[in-house]
Design a protein around this nucleic acid. Structure first.
Length: 477
DNA sequence: AAGGAAGCCAACCGCTCACGT
DNA sequence: CACGTGAGCGGTTGGCTTCCT
């Protein structure tokens, strides 16, 4: 309603609004304290869920949807109110760079915050920055992606030398992207909602580490099961990363993300492994009541306390679906660069067809989260997979959980090719920012990372808020 | 002080998915 | 396998507040 309309609204209308509009026995509009009390009482007695029965059983003139929303956003315990802290903002920025507009998933990593809050925050912040002609993401996101990919390039080369036909290299690559338990021989590189930032979100730039450190392999990480993990940028394994670079370089998509990438690397898992989160499966209720603990627990970035090197165990991130494809976009970029190679493959119809088929498969997985051939199998071996993703936050998170293709190994082989292609053409001469070099000796830890080693947050803040380094970045939109 | 613009936030709406029958 | 229902998610809207002129 425009201000003028508001001005002329009469007292009757005002009174009606205060009482809320009742239509078909359902009230709409702002909740009253009385309604809140009824709902809280109801939840106390009956627990969460079954929202449609609230109206019947409590006499509340609200639809189930409205009740759920009111409870989730305002009444449930452990909700944080008030402005976002700087750390929280940093987390949101980074998560958005990875996930796009997945507010619920972002909320799952911000204890006490709701998706609605985050969404509102982002929308207002984005509007502001867009008006100011500033990019949405800090430049370190770009640099981080670069470094990250270079690391993996080296790693893949190493893997290929060791196991030229290994089908696991890609999944190992994936495993290297996300913290997980290193020492658990039963662990799986499944996709889950990685809590990459835990509650130490700050410093996207500052936590950057020397690639050589990130590739400091430990024996226990490269055990017989092939579960090999190397430390990674604490901020973002693949992701944080990504979106910015491609958002700006390639544009397109929701919030500048590249959508519908044919690559869905994080939908792939190595079949022989098991679920790391299986031993910490929160019930939906517990996840909810505890804020996001349960969700976060599924794949939290776990500092390996047995390892003094501050390694982080690696678990795959749940697939960023749709609009967070920094890596995807990088791949596309690389594809453009590797036109010659593509031409070669086109000369070979078999190879070209194989690639095309594979990409279509991946594309399908990206769009739908599943591949028809891998229909969910309830109550069997895939149950773990389902359970994991249920742990993450919602059913929708599970969209990309199934393994891709009937022959995941084959898929992964092909994926390796693509990634190698990408990495072979990734610009190596991209300069690393000063803070990156400063961070050479920094550990990987998030929680353990000494704050003293970080650049002055004020500097970061200045860079961000004042946009000092943003002028070199392409504009949004 | 008044009016308008912008910011912020709560709530709603439509869609999708999972699950049960 | 089809259908219905419940639940959750993301986008959008609307109203109140704050800021600016």
């Amino acid at each position: 309603m425009c201000p003028m309309a508001r001005t002329v609204s009469n007292s009757n209308e005002t009174a009606a609004k205060e009482e809320g509009e009742v239509r078909n026995g359902v009230r709409k509009g702002p909740w009253t304290p009385e309604e809140d009390a009824i709902l809280m009482d109801y939840v106390k007695k009956h627990g969460e869920g079954n929202w449609n029965s609230v109206q019947k059983n409590s006499g509340l003139l609200r639809c189930g949807k409205s009740c759920r929303l009111r409870w989730a956003n305002h009444l449930r315990p452990n909700l944080k109110k008030g402005a976002f802290s700087q750390e929280e903002e940093q987390v949101i920025i980074d998560l958005h760079s990875k996930l796009g507009n997945k507010w619920a998933r972002m909320a799952a990593q911000l204890p006490g915050r709701t998706d609605n809050e985050i969404k509102n925050f982002w929308n207002t912040r984005m509007k502001r920055r867009q008006r100011a002609g500033l990019p949405l993401y800090p430049p370190e996101v770009h640099a981080e992606a670069t470094s990250y990919l270079l690391q993996h390039h080296r790693y893949l080369e190493q893997q290929q030398q060791q196991q030229p036909h290994s089908s696991s290299s890609f999944s190992l690559l994936l495993s290297s992207c996300y913290p997980n338990k290193l020492n658990d021989p039963n662990q799986t590189h499944h996709h889950s909602n990685a809590n990459l930032l835990q509650s130490q979100p700050d410093h996207s730039a500052n936590r950057y580490i020397n690639p050589s450190q990130q590739f400091k392999f430990s024996n226990e990480n490269s055990g017989s099961n092939g579960n090999f993990a190397f430390p990674l940028s604490p901020l973002s394994p693949y992701g944080s990363s990504s979106s910015t670079l491609l958002n700006h370089s390639l544009g397109g998509g929701d919030h500048g993300f590249i959508a519908g990438s044919p690559y869905e690397p994080f939908s792939l898992v190595q079949g022989s492994t098991t679920d790391i989160s299986s031993n910490q499966t929160p019930t939906p209720a517990s996840s909810y009541a505890s804020g996001v603990d349960g969700l976060m627990g599924a794949s939290s970035m776990v500092n390996n306390n047995n390892n003094n090197n501050d390694y982080y165990e690696v678990a795959p991130l749940s697939p960023p679906q749709g609009n967070s494809g920094l890596l995807d976009a990088l791949v596309m970029e690389a594809q453009g660069l590797s036109h010659n190679e593509k031409s070669k493959s086109e000369e070979d119809p078999n190879l070209a067809g194989k690639l095309s088929c594979k990409r279509k498969k991946m594309e399908y997985a990206e769009e739908g989260g599943t591949v028809p051939a891998m229909k969910k199998n309830s109550g069997n071996s895939t149950t773990n997979e389902s359970q994991r993703d249920d742990d993450i936050s919602s059913s929708q998170l599970a969209k990309g959980k199934e393994q891709i293709g009937e022959d995941p190994l084959e898929e992964m082989n092909g994926m390796d090719d693509d990634l190698v292609s990408l990495l072979n053409h990734f610009p190596l001469e991209m300069p690393m920012p000063e803070w990156y070099r400063r961070g050479e000796n920094q550990s990987l830890g998030l929680e353990n990372q000494p704050k003293a080693s970080l650049p002055d947050p004020a500097d970061q803040e200045d860079a961000w808020t004042l946009g000092t380094c943003w002028n070199n970045m392409p504009r949004i939109c």
